[in-house]
């Protein structure tokens, strides 16, 4: 009987992952959450205003090949290079997830909205913007580009995506901060159930984030490109 081989499970360097993911960001996003919750008008949207931006910036600072001091050593290790991204992303998820869950409970008490509804409001855009920040930094090799992409896309989505939907309603799946009320308007336009439109939007933007993360992990396999060694002669 042929032996069944399982993929080798590599250990995860949690301690380093947490250190590299700037854990003090949790304090910033926690404080920002509390501040936004002080304003009654923002209270119901405080989670989706704060968490995607904070987690996105954190993700943009996670891995920039040019700023990684021990890059060559890390890539030469037998453990597959994408693990570096897995563990750091997981650390950000844990950090921001903890803040988000605590915020969700608090907000649900304050604004009387079901925790699940709040969770669906902030989690998909957080995944999407994290993916965007990670990818922008990875491709440009500069954290500043990732941070900029996160800030500008978040602001553009918050300020302009509603206007854009009025002109191009079919773009609704790409609106990071799509609101259930827009789904109801869209339901009349498309002749579909608002829950369906909202679900499509949430799934699409979360998928965009996951795809961006996967793209980075795939990119990590090309160690030559990660090292930036395309021009090296020695």
């Amino acid at each position: 009987m042929p032996a069944i081989s399982f993929p080798h499970r590599w250990p995860v360097a949690w301690h380093m992952a947490f250190r590299e993911s700037s854990p003090w960001f949790a304090a910033i996003s926690g404080a920002a959450l509390l501040i936004t919750m002080l304003f009654p008008d923002l209270r119901s949207r405080s989670l989706e205003l704060v968490l995607p931006l904070a987690a996105g910036i954190q993700a943009a600072l996670l891995f920039s090949p040019d700023d990684e001091p021990a890059l060559e050593t890390l890539l030469a290790a037998p453990r597959p290079a994408p693990y570096l991204i897995y563990e750091r992303l997981a650390a950000v998820f844990v950090i921001q997830g903890a803040v988000g869950l605590a915020g969700t409970v608090l907000a649900s008490v304050m604004v009387n909205i079901a925790p699940l509804t709040l969770l669906v409001g902030w989690l998909p855009p957080t995944i999407a913007i994290m993916g965007l920040g990670l990818l922008a930094t990875f491709v440009s090799r500069r954290s500043s580009a990732g941070v900029l992409a996160v800030i500008l896309v978040t602001l553009a989505m918050l300020a302009g995506a509603d206007l854009l939907l009025m002109r191009f309603p079919a773009l609704f799946p790409l609106h990071f901060f799509f609101q259930p009320v827009f789904a109801q308007i869209g339901a009349e336009y498309f002749g579909a159930a608002p829950e369906l439109l909202y679900a499509i939007n949430r799934i699409v933007i979360a998928l965009l984030g996951v795809l961006a993360m996967l793209r980075v992990m795939m990119g990590m396999r090309n160690t030559e490109a990660v090292l930036g060694a395309n021009h090296k002669t020695d």
């Binding site: 500043s144 941070v147 900029l148 800030i151 500008l152 602001l155």
Partner: peptide
């Protein structure tokens, strides 16, 4: 607004880049 966001983030690394 765009200039403010881009410039303060992008040009912050001008001198640290020399150190790097």
């Amino acid at each position: 607004v765009l200039v403010a966001i881009t410039v303060v983030v992008f040009f912050a690394e001008t001198i640290p880049l020399d150190r790097q």
